[in-house]
Nucleic acid binder design. Structure first.
Lengths: 193, 193
DNA sequence: AACGTATGCCAACAAGTGTTGACAGTCCAG
DNA sequence: CTGGACTGTCAACACTTGTTGGCATACGTT
């Protein structure tokens, strides 16, 4: 083994450049969206030539795809007792968003790009709906209940990370968990109102 | 009086063109966002020449400004008994969004344009915060409580009108009121959790 | 009828975009 | 040392964008 992690590839010299491009791309996409994040601007940030971006990532779409290749992974929520799932879920999403700019990028772009919007549905369909089906009183209501949860979480992300409303940015993470946790819990488990 | 409404201006012949441009612009902005909604495409929809857009609205920014000049107006919520404010507010936003494409346009663009994002804060600052200050137990918490309400409403708008998640689109309006009403009510009036 | 104005179209511009190919230096195996 | 592959730069391409000015036509007033 050559590096810190075991790689099959022989660790080429250009890996540093590749990484710096990807980092710059994530920042630009998260800050400006797809159209305004030009390849020239990303290349300038990464301090290389725009043509290198093309060589390493094919085209702009390919670069974006790799920049937002994030894994939401709701880990081990199946073994949750069921009483605190709401709080746990909110806390999970919060730490996820705070640490990875890819989510902000995906969301900003999803507002105008159907492909990115569809990619966001993956979380809803693959993780939230099954969760709602397992915890809720009526499996048939699972899609509706999961949709409400998604709108809650994404609404916070929108006002806090995308639109950056000062009043939303000022909220303390634990304060958010205290308020949104019961909401999610109710959407998932409470009887139909 | 010449038309249905009283106008000070003598009702010029180009008013129909002006209106068709504005309608096409609203649709395009709402569907594609700012960058992808090109003046040429809008002009093609309105069946006129792109140069007419410039003559009547100065430039693209001016056109967008008039296209999203919508008034959220939370009417008479001050006289609401206080017990059903949550439901009333949700219902109000819902009818607002269903009827006017300007909101969708503003939101889609706000995801990448800071100016549009700031325009959206107007609703929060001018209407939601005062409401929270009047109804909530502690005036100092008004910004935080209002921010939570904004994130709730905008989250629904995001998944339903912008990202168009099928599970969110499928929700019945009254079903939404039933679920989101109590949430808003709690954010506004419930004691700190 | 005649004139000034409003309305519309056409062609073109400068700027910026993603993308491509040719060319120079650098590294490493033989 | 020498060859070929890797890494990077430069200049240019084809295209789309917002925007502008000139020119033709229709209108309303006198």
């Amino acid at each position: 083994m050559t590096g810190t992690t075991e790689n099959q590839q022989p660790a080429r010299r250009s890996d540093a450049t590749r990484a710096s491009i990807l980092t710059a791309a994530r920042e630009r996409f998260a800050a400006d969206g797809y159209e305004k994040a030009t390849i020239r601007a990303i290349a300038r940030d990464a301090k290389i030539d725009p043509s290198m971006v093309m060589r390493y990532y094919g085209n702009k779409a390919g670069l974006f795809a790799e920049a937002v290749a994030v894994d939401p992974g709701l880990p081990g929520l199946s073994v949750e007792p069921g009483d605190t799932v709401g709080r746990t879920l909110v806390r999970h999403f919060l730490t996820l968003w705070e640490g990875n700019e890819g989510f902000t990028a995906l969301m900003r772009v999803g507002a105008t790009d159907p492909a990115a919007a569809e990619r966001m549905q993956f979380v809803l369909r693959d993780q939230l709906i099954p969760l709602a089906r397992r915890l809720g009183p009526d499996p048939e209501q699972a899609p509706a209940r999961a949709a409400l949860c998604a709108s809650t979480v994404l609404g916070l992300a929108l006002t806090r990370y995308v639109l950056r409303f000062p009043e939303s940015v000022a909220l303390d993470p634990e304060e958010i968990v205290d308020w949104l946790g019961p909401t999610i819990q109710r959407y998932l488990t409470a009887p139909t109102p």
